[in-house]
């Protein structure tokens, strides 16, 4: 095959377009831009139940994402779920009486941890724990209780 400068230029453009496409996919279409390891500190919370919560689930306060779930473990003595959250370092002024609850985004959406800041003057620091928690609402349980109550009232 004869070679020409046009051909070389086209090869260059092709490679550039391909790499641009891959960059676009990485940066614009996926979460690469948001998982660049930002400085964060760890806060743990004990829940009666963390059903549906996963590692990487969002942690938000007032609807703003402030971090993500880093690990979920079962406490072998109390049988509670210990959820460790990585909170962005810039949100280091959350009061230490913050309430953590597990909410659902929408009716069938993902579970996330919602932080409700309290009024204390001391702030949450690395490896501190949130004491006031509210477990995940399990729909089946709620429906079960509702049916049970309805049956009680009929008697």
């Amino acid at each position: 095959m004869q070679h020409s400068n046009t051909q070389d230029t086209l090869v260059g453009l092709f490679v550039a377009a391909g790499i641009a496409g891959l960059f676009f996919l990485s940066l614009k279409a996926s979460n690469l831009s948001s998982i660049t390891q930002k400085d964060s500190f760890m806060v743990s919370a004990r829940f009666e139940n963390s059903d549906g919560l996963k590692v990487k689930s969002a942690v938000s306060a007032a609807g703003v994402k402030v971090g993500q779930v880093a690990s979920i473990e079962l406490d072998p003595t109390t049988y509670q779920s210990v959820v460790t959250m990585a909170i962005d370092a810039k949100y280091n002024n959350l009061p230490d009486d913050t309430t953590a609850s597990i909410f659902t985004a929408g009716l069938l959406g993902e579970k996330y941890v919602n932080l409700e800041p309290g009024g204390s003057d001391t702030y949450l620091a690395n490896n501190s724990a949130i004491d006031i928690t509210q477990p995940a609402i399990i729909l089946e349980k709620v429906i079960g209780q509702f049916l049970f109550k309805a049956a009680e009232e009929k008697k």
Binding site: F14, V15, A17, G18, I19, A20, G21, L22, F24, L25, A29
Partner: peptide, 15 residues
């Protein structure tokens, strides 16, 4: 070398 580039272009243009 071409195939990953082509697939990247394909997905990008598709999106």
């Amino acid at each position: 070398l071409s195939m990953p580039l082509l697939a990247g272009v394909f997905s990008t243009i598709g999106i």
